[in-house]
């Protein structure tokens, strides 16, 4: 008989979004997402290196638009109970945030290879790290001040700004009734005695600006509360499978 011991449980509840629209107030209501574009620049007042931020809603299959380089695609998820890797997480499906960045001198915020240009030419849909054809994209474009050197800190400024914006929706998503979720996934970590033990090593970037990763932020796929792999000296950090699938890494590559 195979002996298994239950060690941890993570429940991810998905709320599917069917439409995203501009509104006077941020909100998530019955598969509809509303965004107040004006809230953004108010939120950014603390960030002195940012000139301005623009929010656009890109509808499914309307990718014939010009963008600055894509810094990241981020899911909107939040902890409802427990810390990353345990308890309950709420996440939105059907919509993802696309962070793009440039400075006022036109320098693209990317390391090697930029994806600025027409979105349709620079994005392969349907990959694990990119949206599906039917997904909405909330385009968060950061324009940074041109006289600030493009350092690690500047990349962090863009990601932090985007995180502050996403947090507005996390706070709303936290309050959603879990029973109304469109999908519920339960992940149980079991300690097993008769199976082959495997570890996955993920070698991630850690060389400097645009080659950084934040490990274990306070909110899934967030920035705040996490530690940069560079600041940790790039030494290995072990995550449980549930921590990893609960958004333990914020890629700033």
């Amino acid at each position: 008989m195979e002996r298994e011991k239950l060690i941890k449980r993570l429940i991810i509840k998905c709320f599917d979004i069917h439409s995203v629209n501009i509104s006077k107030k941020n909100g998530i209501d019955k598969n509809k997402m509303l965004i107040d574009k004006d809230c953004v620049n108010q939120l950014m007042q603390q960030e002195k290196d940012i000139k301005n931020v623009n929010i656009n809603i890109i509808k499914p299959r309307e990718h014939n638009c010009r963008i600055d380089t894509i810094m990241d695609f981020i899911p909107i998820s939040t902890k409802v109970l427990g810390r990353i890797g345990e308890g309950i997480t709420h996440t939105l499906t059907g919509v993802y945030v696309m962070l793009t960045g440039v400075n006022t001198k036109g320098v693209q915020m990317s390391g090697f290879g930029s994806t600025d240009g027409y979105l349709k030419d620079n994005l392969k849909l349907g990959c694990p790290g990119t949206p599906e054809e039917d997904d909405y994209i909330i385009h968060f474009n950061v324009v940074l001040k041109g006289d600030v050197p493009t350092t690690r800190e500047l990349s962090l400024v863009a990601h932090r700004a985007c995180d502050i914006f996403i947090q507005q929706f996390r706070n709303i998503l936290k309050m959603k009734d879990g029973r109304l979720a469109d999908e519920i996934h339960e992940y149980v970590e079991r300690k097993s005695e008769n199976k082959k033990r495997i570890v996955v090593i993920k070698q991630v970037a850690g060389q400097g600006a645009f080659h950084d990763n934040i490990i274990l932020p306070a909110e899934p796929s967030g920035v705040k509360g996490g530690r940069s792999i560079i600041d940790m000296g790039n030494v290995p950090v072990i995550l449980s499978p549930n921590e990893y699938r609960d958004g333990a890494i914020r890629a700033m590559t």
Binding site: F73, K202, P241
Partner: peptide
């Protein structure tokens, strides 16, 4: 991307396999 890590196929495939016990993910920098 961050979204890739959130729904990494590597994790999905390995943790679904009945012969395998996935101990953890070691994240190491470059």
């Amino acid at each position: 991307t961050t979204l890739h890590h959130f729904r990494d196929p590597l994790l999905n495939i390995i943790s679904k396999d009945k012969d395998i016990d996935l101990i953890g993910i070691i994240v190491v920098g470059t």
